[in-house]
Simulated scan of single mutants.
Amino acid sequence: MPQATLVREFEIIYARLALLVDPSPDFVERDITMAEIKAALVSGIKRVKRVLSTLLEAG
C-alpha cells in the first residue's frame, strides 16, 4: 500500500474508512439484489457523513 509509505515518511495523520455494500458470498447464503445493495449504500453514506462530520468537528 503506497499510501502507508508516504504517510510514514511525511508523518501525515491518515485514516481509511470503508463502506461494505455487497457482502461476500461466504457470509450470505442467498443472492443479494441491486435494491439491497442500493439500500446498503444509501444507509452507509449517511453513516459515513456522520463519522466525517464528527471527526471534522473534533478537529
Rank of each mutant, 00 (worst) to 15 (best):
M1R: 10
M1Q: 09
M1V: 06
P2Q: 11
Q3H: 06
Q3Y: 07
A4F: 07
A4Y: 06
T5F: 14
T5Y: 11
L6I: 15
L6E: 12
L6M: 13
V7N: 03
R8N: 12
E9T: 08
E11L: 06
E11Y: 06
E11P: 00
E11W: 03
I12K: 09
Y14G: 09
Y14W: 12
Y14H: 15
Y14L: 04
Y14V: 02
A15F: 13
A15V: 09
A15I: 07
R16N: 13
L17D: 02
A18E: 15
L19Y: 05
V21W: 05
P23Q: 09
P23M: 06
S24L: 05
S24I: 02
S24R: 02
P25L: 03
P25A: 05
D26Q: 11
D26W: 09
F27Y: 14
F27T: 13
V28G: 01
E29H: 14
D31H: 10
I32V: 15
T33G: 02
T33H: 02
T33P: 00
M34T: 10
A35P: 02
A35C: 01
I37Y: 01
I37W: 00
A39K: 13
A39C: 05
A39H: 14
A40V: 04
L41D: 06
V42G: 00
V42L: 10
V42T: 12
G44K: 02
I45S: 04
I45V: 15
K46A: 15
R47F: 02
R47S: 14
R47A: 07
K49Y: 06
R50S: 10
R50C: 05
V51G: 03
V51N: 06
V51E: 12
V51L: 14
S53N: 15
S53H: 14
L56P: 00
E57A: 13
A58Y: 03
A58C: 05
G59N: 09
